[in-house]
Amino acid sequence: MENVAFQHSLPALVHEVEQFYFLEADMFDEWRLREWLELLADDVRYFMPMTRNVAHNNRAAQFTRPQQDVAWFDDDKQILVARVEQILSGVHWAEEPLSRISHLVTNVRIHAAEGDTVEAGSRFLIYKNRMQSETDIYVGKRRDVLRRTADGLRIAKRTIWLDQNVLLAKNLTTLF
């Protein structure tokens, strides 16, 4: 396996990953969710833990654990497909009418690039407004494992840390 870092300079790789994230954000915000599903590897893991307030010597317990604890999301591709089909069903009242959403993605950094795999971190700020004045703001961090395929980058693993303890929104119908 060749090291991607040798094929691409770091700025080029950052640019490629950023452009990938911006495309993804457009897909979210324009409700092109079936297209977004195509950006996911078939074995994708999509995980958003819950966050606890813990003592400084108990920081390991700050987040619930994947495939073990309760989480806001701990999904495979099948469940993500179901979520998308529900949102686009026209009778999912929590998203009917659809909300107005803008995903901002920033602080993109490459943590590792080896073979066909890129590990990238980012921050997100998502603004959601629905009905008249219902507004939610989600801010947090993401860490992805991206896989390079003949069709372009694919998300093999995404971990999302939302900077909230008690959730501040009544619903999480937004994709992150």
């Binding site: 999301f73 979520r83 929590a94 009544k170 619903n171 999480l172």
Partner: peptide, 16 residues
């Protein structure tokens, strides 16, 4: 957890 709570595909519609 895919059924209940704010990320649950059933309870979201109750909450709305």
């Amino acid at each position: 957890i895919r059924y209940q709570g704010p990320s649950g595909m059933t309870e979201q519609d109750d909450l709305e």
